[in-house]
Design a protein around this nucleic acid. Structure first.
Lengths: 210, 210
DNA sequence: GTCTATACAGAGATAGAC
DNA sequence: GTCTATCTCTGTATAGAC
């Protein structure tokens, strides 16, 4: 692509970027802990250590701010995908992704998916950067799903899109919190959810009732 | 002698109850469509056809109102459980319940489970009526799970509580909305989700990566 | 118990000095 | 660009007449 040497960012620009990152990180944290509707811009500013008015010099509004936080999350996911060892099979890659997203959810970080009836969902539909990043991720994961199906590691009677949804939806599965409320340890919860997601609840090939 | 027409002492009470039911129904509808944080008491009053101040004569506040709506939902679930044909196996009962809750979710009705970071979750923890009803439902469904395990219809290597959580969590599974956004028909979505929940994503016994 | 009108609080967003 | 102080709107809850 662009092989031109990038101009060294000025000190001021670095400061600017660093502060913006701090804001986004604070927003991500609160978004994960409290959700879009419950969190407030005041809290974000307080956690970032700046005044609210300064925050509005960086972001147009709450929607904008949280959309940026969500883009941040997707970019982290992309880096995780990039960092997977080359020798892994397609299924192993998908398992690693699943484990990563479940772990995220249990540590109260931003979920990959916005809540169904959250105003954030609408804001994200209008955010081109988020849509583009998310499309990339989908295409890439879908490729792994198809490959895993070809290798016989995933069911071939399900459309790849459906499997893709089933995997991504785990990152917002309420089952994790229900199990945590019962007092189970995080790692055990993750193992159960992954196991059930992949193998199901029935012992063998299920005999569906007519 | 008393020539007055037969007294109908419960008439006023009936009116009272009918109005209260209308309020709860409106609250349920909006709770399902928009979620606890986004919906407003004004909207509920408008949908119920009364003034907001009148609503506050029936319920102490928004929390109270929505808790009542949630209790209403659990009671409907209990009636569904009561109405299941006696000749069904335990697994078939669980499948029927699963199908019912998935159908509910797709028709934008109140989900059985509150969102993770919703203020409603806290309100429900403080609501004895909800807690009691929910405990009853849990115990009953858990019984069916144990029975299905004994019949070999559900995996025995998972604790019943875990399977119970896995089933209940489907009623708030974001997968349904993802598939709907892809343009699939409701019935097909439900079939896929039930199938994947019970049989998993892998073809046979899964070979976990070491 | 139901209404109209209003008090009160919280949160998003902005003004204007520095 | 950052701050303090303020505006404005929305939404919960209540007062008081009938």
């Amino acid at each position: 692509m662009n092989t031109l040497p990038l101009p060294r960012p000025s000190f001021k620009a670095q400061m600017h970027q660093a502060r913006e990152d701090a804001i986004v990180e604070a927003a991500s944290r609160l978004l994960g802990e409290k959700g879009f509707e419950t969190m407030t811009v005041d809290e974000v500013a307080a956690h970032a250590g700046i005044a609210k008015a300064s925050l509005y010099k960086h972001f147009a509004g709450k929607d904008d701010l949280c959309a940026a936080a969500m883009v941040h999350v997707v970019e982290r996911l992309q880096r995780v995908m990039d960092g997977l060892p080359a020798e892994l099979t397609a299924l192993q890659r998908l398992q690693a992704l699943l484990r990563w997203s479940l772990h995220r959810q249990l540590t109260e970080e931003v979920p990959l998916l916005p809540g169904r009836s959250s105003a954030l969902a609408q804001a994200l539909r209008d955010c081109d950067a988020y849509q583009a990043a998310m499309r990339q991720v989908h295409v890439r994961i879908r490729g792994w799903v198809v490959q895993a199906q070809a290798e016989g590691a995933l069911r071939r009677d399900l459309p790849p899109e459906v499997i893709l949804c089933a995997l991504l939806a785990r990152s917002a599965d309420p089952m994790l919190y229900m199990l945590r409320d019962l007092g189970h340890a995080d790692e055990r919860i993750i193992d159960w959810v992954m196991d059930i997601c992949l193998s199901g609840l029935t012992p063998g090939p299920v005999a569906l009732a007519g």
